[in-house]
Simulated scan of single mutants.
Amino acid sequence: MIRRVGPPPVKGQKYTQRSGAYAILPMPGGVLLTGQQGDWLDIQLPGGGIDPGESSQQTLHREVREETGWAIAQPLRLGAFRRFVYMPEYDMWAEKLCTVFVARPTRRICDPIEPDHVTLVLPWAKAIDSIGNDGDRMFLQRYAAGLA
């Protein structure tokens, strides 16, 4: 069973299952993250939903490139968590199944392609304090402590 992180599902609410792949990207001096600008800067592990016909690793490469502009190598699966959220950009209640990898950023190839995304490199402690969701934070803490 995949561990739930965050609030439980709302009783009576129907959820669409949405699988995704996300990356911890260690860099000298910290970790490479994405920030999504809106009413506030939502700091996240780069990643997103798996498109039909894509593997989780294909998704990881695509999403990291779209959200940060970086190419990656050697993705290694660390684990998974699930969370129940409302996704306003899709007007959808989702049970997100989030698979987390660690990968090596190899080179910056472009600016972020995703609208309203910025690339950040934060020291580990600041990244853990700033990350926007509890599942991402849990995996960052485990990785930083050498437990993942």
Rank of each mutant, 00 (worst) to 15 (best):
A80Y: 06
G29M: 05
F139R: 04
G47C: 07
P28M: 03
K96E: 14
A148M: 02
L33I: 02
D129Y: 09
F81R: 06
V102H: 06
Q36P: 02
H61R: 14
D42Q: 11
L76Y: 08
C110G: 13
Q57K: 13
G38C: 05
C110E: 12
T16N: 08
I113P: 01
Q74W: 09
P28V: 00
L32S: 07
S19H: 10
M1D: 10
Q44R: 15
I72F: 03
R62C: 02
A94R: 12
I50G: 00
H61G: 02
P46H: 05
V85T: 13
R108N: 09
G49N: 11
L32A: 07
A21H: 04
H61V: 11
I109C: 07
T34E: 14
P9S: 09
I43H: 00
V102N: 08
A21V: 06
A71C: 09
G20S: 13
G146H: 09
I43L: 14
P26K: 06
I109S: 06
A73V: 06
M92D: 09
L147V: 01
L41G: 01
A21C: 11
P115S: 11
P75S: 08
L32N: 06
Q37I: 09
V85Y: 05
R137Y: 01
R77S: 15
I113A: 10
V85I: 15
Y86H: 14
Y86A: 07
I109W: 07
L41R: 13
L122H: 01
R82D: 10
I2K: 10
F139A: 02
R62F: 03
R4I: 14
I72V: 14
I109G: 12
W124I: 03
I131N: 00
E54M: 14
G132Y: 00
I50F: 00
C98F: 03
Y15N: 05
N133Y: 07
V118G: 02
I131M: 00
V102G: 08
T59L: 06
L45G: 03
R62V: 05
